[in-house]
Design a protein around this nucleic acid. Structure first.
Length: 786
DNA sequence: GTTCTAGAAC
DNA sequence: GTTCTAGAAC
């Protein structure tokens, strides 16, 4: 079993089960069959669940390598985790911070005597050497203990020996304390006890210099998990995460704690891409369209260098304090695409380059800050040089469209170029194989890409593109930071391949144009959901007009903090360990923080752009089924604990017209007010029907769970299956309806009287609720409709 | 989403 | 006078 499979989150197996069981034919099925399938899935889910638990028990020791400047709080981090953790931790400390600092300060003061108190610490303390640290860490790991490597570890070279401590029996993590420089500096200055004087100032300068040369860790160094902490809140969350890892637990793999979990981009890489002139010349660089040959040569040289790995040393410009580096740059959506149809399909290169440049030009103004990169393997690529020349002629912005020489499957790890989306020159059956880019991408994407593709479609027509979100289990996702693959099918001019156009270039060019249009539209739809777009239709190819506003940054829509919270939890569940009960690729389960009943859970959808029920379409049905399944599993658990509980699973049906959309103001940015819908991130309520809760206070609380405003999950799935979407409700009318008991339907004048009544009402549930599995478990005493 | 509070309802 | 609600504020 591959390593990742053993790291499944609780319940992830369940979702995998659902994923693979759901055929696209599902949408044609009537509602009763959905219920049947649902039940079958529950059995499978339980089987998988048990297996998952077994896997989980195999807890491995963790070697957590702290990365941070002196004063970043590494030792405090270790101490805080070790204080509360049930896992045996050992802190291996080289105490090199002070040594490093002192030696640097010595150099700066040209060996004049210094009076930093830290000097005493070093002279009298028993700081370990690096070999001693390695030995000590290896011994602890062998004993099954987890270790914190508490030293600066600011560059790859410093880390490599510790990373090598890992193996099949040891998980290697990095915890990066990348806090604002001024914070580390103020702490270290305080620690030296020389605040404000010469020595304190020198220490600060040294820390500053160390930070400028830092090299953030990457998964490709051999880490299975990297947690980035950019501020103290992040640090607190990471402490909680690590404290909560028991002896038999594991943490999910990947990069965590960046602004966008999908943004695998290293800060340094984005800076380096933005300012190529400031980087080491040995670094692989995008070939600028305005330049003729030089950069390509450099690129090739780097890619073919002996290590195959370009130096990733970050050069921070002198005019910028390290602490002021903004992570925002890493959020820039970038599409890498191969030339479509020019390889195996033998499309004329001159014509193809015209089409590429024409389409790029057309989409340029819709792109916002997003980037397009045309990729080819070889330096001698004719298509690249043709495109470069034509794009330069048309004066296309070379920062937002450039060519790159390298393997499209290894742009990040080998080329240092971070692209969240890559295009595939696919075949019509959307199958692996056939050589070329298609074979390489399917190979690099692994079975996860194949399965995810199958879920979307089984075939593709020439001129079309298909956006496939990449599961995190795909190596392309975890290693390369690719979140989506877009399959594109271009025209075929090769008589030995199906559907040859027989040299009809009128038709051929039209099809190729369509292919690039579909590709770029697909990319825009992804970029659309990855920038701050509060509301997306959820359709794959949404119109660019909406994007223009969003990407250009002239207007930034925002959400009230509490509404944003669900989105944040869905995107970064690992940061909300306290609330999160379960997380998988598809859903996050948490307790409602203001439960309106004895048991009240939320199952959050983990995809962007699915804000409310009105956004849900047929393509979301598998996800809705997964959410339902996960909800049912929790119901089983709760009913096992208290057999008197009865549950409904459903969604709040916000009005499509959003009559009471909230106005959120951001005075600090002077951007005025924007209307936003009343909730973000689709979530399924799993709520027991006792409504016994101190948080149930208002009429709208009651009516939101007991009127038609609450749409049962089974009905929603059936409706979307039959009609393509869920109908919206008259929110205002439903919320102001009189207060009626959900069982006997008697009316009550106010909330206290209603609550008093429902605490004792034992009437059977209305007949309509007792149908179609709306109540769980199903009630047997039917036929008592009052 | 909640909390606060003025004013309606009792 | 007390309880409750709706809407503003957060």
């Amino acid at each position: 079993m591959p390593k990742d499979e053993t790291q499944l989150f609780r319940g992830e197996a369940v979702c995998k089960c659902s994923e693979f069981s759901i055929d696209r034919g599902l949408r044609e099925l009537p509602g009763c069959i959905i219920v049947l399938i649902t039940k079958l899935l529950r059995v499978c889910a339980l089987l998988f669940f048990e297996k998952d638990e077994e896997e989980k028990a195999k807890g491995k020791p963790i070697a957590a390598i702290l990365v941070g400047a002196p004063g970043s709080g590494k030792s405090t981090f270790c101490e805080n985790v070790m204080r509360g953790s049930s896992r045996p931790w050992v802190r291996v400390c080289q105490n090199n911070e002070l040594e490093l600092l002192a030696s640097e300060v010595f150099k700066m003061l040209k060996k004049r005597s210094i009076y930093l108190r830290l000097q005493d610490t070093i002279n009298n303390g028993k700081s370990g050497t690096k070999p001693q640290c390695l030995k000590s860490a290896a011994a602890s790991l062998k004993e099954g203990k987890s270790v914190f490597i508490d030293r600066c570890n600011l560059d790859k070279e410093q880390r490599v020996d510790f990373v090598n401590l890992g193996g099949p029996e040891v998980e290697v993590h990095a915890v990066v304390l990348d806090l604002p420089a001024k914070l580390s500096i103020s702490r270290i200055v305080k620690r030296t006890g020389h605040e404000g004087n010469l020595q304190g100032g020198k220490a600060a300068a040294v820390v500053n210099r160390m930070l400028q040369n830092k090299e953030l860790p990457k998964l490709s160094e051999g880490f299975s998990r990297i947690t980035f902490c950019r501020n103290e809140t992040d640090v607190d969350a990471a402490v909680k995460t690590y404290t909560a890892v028991g002896p038999l637990d594991t943490l999910p793999h990947g990069c965590f704690g960046q602004k966008d979990p999908n943004a695998k981009t290293q800060l340094g890489i984005m800076r380096f891409l933005k300012r190529p002139h400031e980087t080491n010349t040995r670094d692989s660089v995008p070939s600028q369209l305005t330049e003729e040959k030089g950069p390509c040569g450099k690129t090739q040289e780097t890619v073919s260098s002996s290590s195959g790995m370009p130096s990733q040393k970050i050069k921070v410009s002198e005019d910028m304090a390290p602490g002021s580096i903004s992570q925002d740059e890493s959020d820039i959506p970038t599409l890498a695409f191969p030339s479509i149809s020019t390889a195996d399909f033998q499309f004329d290169l001159e014509k193809a380059s015209d089409v590429i440049v024409g389409k790029v030009e057309e989409f340029m103004d819709k792109l916002g800050n997003a980037k397009l990169v045309l990729v080819d393997l070889t330096e001698r690529s004719k298509i690249l040089s043709l495109v470069r020349a034509k794009a330069a002629e048309k004066k296309i912005d070379s920062k937002r469209f450039f060519t790159f020489i390298g393997d499209i499957c290894q742009l990040y790890t080998k080329g240092g170029l971070c692209c969240n989306v890559i295009a595939n020159a696919a075949n019509w059956r959307l199958k692996p194989g056939g050589g070329g880019v298609n074979a390489a991408i399917f190979n690099a994407g692994g079975p996860a890409l194949e399965a995810a593709t199958k879920e979307q479609a089984r075939s593709l027509l020439p001129g079309n593109a298909l956006v496939v979100p990449l599961p995190s289990t795909s190596p392309l996702y975890s290693k390369e930071g690719v979140t989506h693959v877009i399959h594109v099918l271009g025209p075929n001019m090769n008589p030995r391949r199906p559907n040859c156009l027989d040299n009809d270039y009128v038709k051929g060019c039209k099809v190729l144009e369509d292919a690039y249009s579909s590709l770029f539209k697909g990319f825009l739809s992804i970029a659309n959901t990855q920038v701050k777009v509060p509301r997306s239709s959820g359709s794959i190819l949404s119109g660019p007009s909406k994007l223009e506003d969003e990407v250009s940054g002239t207007k930034t829509k925002t959400w009230a903090p509490c509404l944003q919270a669900l989105y944040n939890i869905a995107m970064q569940p690992e940061k909300h360990n306290k609330q999160v009960l379960e997380a998988s690729d598809d859903v996050v389960v948490l307790n409602d923080i203001y439960p309106k009943a004895k048991q009240h859970l939320l199952v959050l959808a983990r995809i962007k752009g699915l804000d409310t029920l009105v956004d849900a379409r047929k393509e979301h049905l598998p996800l809705l089924m997964t959410m339902h399944e996960v909800g049912l599993r929790w119901v089983d658990k709760f009913v096992g604990e208290d057999a008197s509980l009865v549950f409904r699973l459903g969604y709040h049906s916000y009005d499509a017209d959003m009559p009471d959309a909230k106005v959120v103001e951001r005075p600090e940015e002077n951007i005025g007010c924007d209307l936003v819908p009343s909730m973000r991130q689709l979530h399924l309520h799993v709520i027991s029907q006792d409504f016994d809760s101190k948080h149930l206070k208002h009429k709208k609380h009651w009516n939101s769970f007991t009127t038609a405003f609450f749409r049962d999950s089974v009905d929603v799935m059936e409706e979307i299956n039959n009609q393509g979407k869920a109908t919206s409700q008259d929110e205002k009318r439903l919320m102001s309806m009189e207060l009626r008991c959900h069982r006997c339907r008697s009316a009550h004048p106010n909330i206290p009287r209603l609550k008093s009544h429902i605490s004792s009402c034992q009437a059977p549930f209305p007949a309509d609720l007792q149908k179609k599995g709306r109540l769980v478990p199903e009630q047997t005493n039917s036929g008592c409709d009052p």
